[in-house]
């Protein structure tokens, strides 16, 4: 008869993922590829922000974009039209990317010769925050209509982000959005986070964002 015994495991559920993410980050560092994990809610203007970013930086660095979506290839086609290398990753119903899925994406994509790879994560403020993708840094787009209290509602997302872009500044007069409160709430979750108000449509604040990215990519390859 089979004999069962109790074995102590004492391991975080995320331990495997964290290990895989650390390995991927190290490999990308050696290859000189800066991977930015871009997160947001659906409809915050992530793809538009990305498009303007590619247009501004494509002559200075080689950019690739990995679009993660549950289905469809709408976003990847938009990006390819701008001349950046793009791939669509389907998560097959999953609400986030983990380190292993990111690695598979990167291997299929081929990042040789690229300076900056932007991973557009699934539009969702909960799950992507839990799984380290192996990215060099995490960024998120928060748009004015979503409200300045989002950092209170999604604390984990804001605590893992290095930079928060507050998009759609052009509609600020029509919403009860308090920028100072927003910054205060973000810094409650993460004192080191950089907050940049932008408008991808009008170009407001975009130079500051491009400079942030330029500095990051240069430091990664230093």
């Amino acid at each position: 008869m089979d004999k069962f015994r109790v074995i102590e495991v004492k391991q975080s559920i995320f331990e495997n993922n964290d290990k895989q993410a650390e390995e991927l980050r190290k490999e990308l560092k050696e290859q000189g590829v800066y991977l930015l994990n871009l997160m947001s809610s659906p409809g915050s203007g992530k793809t538009t922000t990305l498009s303007r970013t590619i247009e501004a930086l494509r002559d200075e660095m080689k950019i690739g974009v990995m679009e993660a979506d549950i289905d469809s290839d709408v976003d990847a086609r938009t990006i390819e039209q701008l001349g950046a290398k793009a791939i669509q990753l389907h998560t097959g119903g999953m609400c986030h990317l983990d380190a292993d899925m990111t690695r598979q994406g990167i291997e299929n994509f081929g990042v040789d010769g690229l300076d900056l790879v932007i991973l557009e994560n699934v539009g969702n403020l909960v799950c992507p925050a839990e799984f380290d993708t192996g990215a060099s840094k995490n960024a998120m787009v928060l748009s004015v209509p979503e409200g300045h209290d989002k950092p209170l509602k999604y604390p984990l997302m804001f605590s893992v982000c290095d930079v928060v872009l507050v998009n759609k500044m052009d509609v600020l007069p029509y919403f009860d959005f308090d920028m100072e409160k927003c910054k205060e709430y973000v810094h409650m979750r993460n004192p080191k986070a950089t907050v940049i108000p932008i408008c991808a449509k009008t170009g407001e604040g975009m130079e500051q964002w491009f400079d942030w990215l330029r500095r990051e990519v240069a430091q990664w390859n230093a």
Binding site: D2, F4, R5, V6, I7, E8, K10, Q11, S12, I13
Partner: peptide, 9 residues
């Protein structure tokens, strides 16, 4: 979010 223990053969 930990795996504490398992019962196994």
């Amino acid at each position: 979010t930990n795996i504490k223990e398992i019962e196994a053969c």
